[in-house]
Every structure is written in structure tokens, then in C-alpha cells.
Computed example of a mutant assay.
Amino acid sequence: MSKIITVFIELMSATLEWLHTNLDGIIVSIVAAVILSLIHYIKNKPKEINELLKCKNFNDINWIDDLDKSLEIKNTMKRHFPEYTDYLLIQYGSSVESNNRLPQDYDFIVLMLGIPKNGKRYLHNKGTTSPDDVSSKRNINQVDIVYRDYLSFLYAASAGMPYENSVITTGKLLKGHIGYFQWLKNITKNQLYDRDFLIRRFEDKISIEKQEFQKYLSENQQFGHEKYYVIRAGYYYITSLLQLNHIKKFDKVIFQNDVVALSKVRMFYDDFKNDNIKNNYIHLVECLKRNNSVDDISIEDIKDTLHELENMEN
């Protein structure tokens, strides 16, 4: 035992002597390593969304790569949708259209390519609204990004859903295989939609959106979850009801332009005869378009709007 202690003391003494002799070199090495690490971090750190969008150049491949990193698409897919291996990044909405009214409003959709287990595909929008997502706390006033399964998106577009057809007609592919995006355009541009089939699809869609709204409403009341989730669910539910009312008035055969027009939700403002309810819906729409604050709409306003719609349908 004493020999082990003696060897340990000799080893420690030798180590201390070596450190004393080479102290300057060790300090220089540590400082150099820190500096190199900082340079690597700064060089590879994703740029702020605000900075990128102010200086956008959609034809600059470096800008697109920077945007892809800043939106944290690969990390989000690995975290939430690990079974998908590739994707299309598409920008759509007012920031793409010429003479846009809302140049600060940026909408992106990620169409994910892959074969999920058990055939379970993400059929509904997965908007980034939670605190750990890129477009919530720091960018909720500028950016909205949605993740969708490519084939489920294609099925919905082929059925005549307004949102999907609007993305196809107005969207701009920023990153991904252009053939997949062109396929969406080719399949839907000359397609005729059956009104009655679309009505049945909307009734199914509305049933799901009603359940989502009630779920978030219950969670807000019981657990104090964020009001934004209730507002977002209420927006989709109410808007689908309004769209369905218009679809019922269409001719038997519907063209793509007809369903795309339904995605321009401001057209529904005049559907309300009650000015207070009309203003409620206006505030709701502008809130989701990030022109108004979440505080500009209340949950009671959404309930009143739904009550008005029920009376309109009767």
C-alpha cells in the first residue's frame, strides 16, 4: 500500500512540474481553442429570420440555404417527424404575390417525403406554435411554417380543398426536387371537382376541426393553456363553416379557380349581417395573419361567432 502511495505522490509531483514548465503553452492552446470554437460557431450560426427576410433574394442559393437553417427544418423533422427523409420547402401567400398587401407576412409549408410506419400520415396542418418552435415566440409576428405529409397534401388538393390548391397555384418552390412540385401543379390545374363530393369532405373536415377547437378550449379552461391555440383552432373551424356555405351554392362541377377563391378569407367578411360578429371575425382573421395582436380577439368572441353561424345555417 505504501508503495502505491509513493508512486502516486511521484506521479503527481511530475505532473505538477510538467504543468509549471509548460503553463504558457497550455494557456495559449486553450485560448486558441476557444477562439477557433467561437469562429466556427459564428460562421455556422443560423442567421436571424428578421435579417434574412429584410434582404431576401429568392434566386440566391446561399440565401435559401440560410433560410433553411434558420427555420430549423431538418432539426424539426428529426425531432417530430423522424420517418420522413426529404422535403420540399415552399413559400406561399401574400409575400409571394405581386402587389402584395402584407409584405411582412411570410408563410412557408414543408411537404415531407417518406413512408411513415403503420401508414400513419400527417393529414392535418402541424403549425409551429409551441414555445420550442421557430415561428412562435420570436417570429410569430413574421413567420408561419406548416409541416405536411406530401401524399396527404396531394390527396386533399385533388379533392378540391381550398388551402392546398391555393398553395399549389401561388406557391414558389424554394428548396427540393422541382419534379414533385410540378407534379402537384400538373395534376390539379385541369382537374374538375365534384361539388357534392367536396361537401362531404368538408363535413368530415369540419367535424375534426370542431373536436380540435373543443379540445383546446377545454385545455384552456381547465389547465390555463395558451389562448392562441384556441384562437387558431377557432379560426379554422369558423372559416371552414363559411367556406362550406359557399360551396353549397356552387354548380355541380367546380373548377380550381373556384376553390382557390375560397382561400381568400377576407371575402367572408360580408357574410355576416351583425356588425359586431363581423368585426369579431375580422379581428380573428387579422390575428391569424399576424396583423393584430392575440389580445384583439377573445374566446367569447369566437363562441359568439360560432353561435351566429349556427343561426345562419338554420
Rank of each mutant, 00 (worst) to 15 (best):
Y106Q: 05
M77R: 00
M77V: 05
R121F: 01
M112D: 10
E83N: 06
L102C: 02
S135H: 03
D133E: 15
S135K: 00
D144H: 09
F108H: 00
P131W: 08
N125D: 10
V96D: 13
D133G: 01
N125S: 08
Y87H: 06
L151N: 12
V146P: 00
K137T: 13
L151W: 11
P131N: 13
F108A: 01
M112E: 03
I115C: 07
L102V: 06
D132Y: 09
N141A: 12
D144C: 15
S130N: 10
D105Q: 13
K117T: 02
T85E: 15
R148I: 05
G127P: 02
Y150T: 04
S152E: 15
Y84S: 06
K137I: 15
G119E: 11
R138A: 13
L113Y: 12
E97S: 06
N125C: 03
V110Q: 01
G119C: 07
Y147M: 14
L111G: 06
Y147Q: 12
Q104V: 03
D86M: 12
P82E: 04
V96W: 04
D132C: 03
V96C: 08
K117R: 11
S136Q: 06
Q91R: 12
R101L: 10
L102F: 15
Q142S: 14
D149F: 01
L113K: 14
Q104D: 13
H124R: 11
D107V: 05
D133C: 08
V143Q: 01
L113T: 05
G93S: 05
N139M: 10
R79S: 11
I90C: 12
T128S: 11
L123V: 08
R148H: 13
G93V: 05
K120C: 02
N100S: 13
K117L: 06
Y150H: 04
G127K: 01
R101T: 09
E97P: 00
D107M: 02
N125V: 07
T128L: 03
Q91N: 14
T76S: 14
I109T: 15
D86S: 12
K78T: 11
S94C: 11
R79W: 09
S94I: 08
S95C: 15
L88F: 03
D105G: 05
T76L: 04
L89H: 09
N100Q: 07
I145M: 06
L111N: 05
D132K: 07
P116Q: 04
I140W: 06
L123E: 13
P82I: 02
D144A: 15
K137E: 14
N139P: 04
T76H: 13
S94R: 07
P116I: 04
R148G: 02
R101H: 06
R79L: 04
K126D: 12
D149T: 01
E97H: 03
Y150Q: 03
N141R: 15
K117D: 05
T85C: 02
L88G: 01
R121P: 00
Y87E: 05
G93P: 01
N99W: 14
K120G: 03
D133S: 14
I115H: 06
Q142G: 04
Y84W: 05
Y106V: 03
G93K: 00
S136T: 09
N100L: 02
G114D: 09
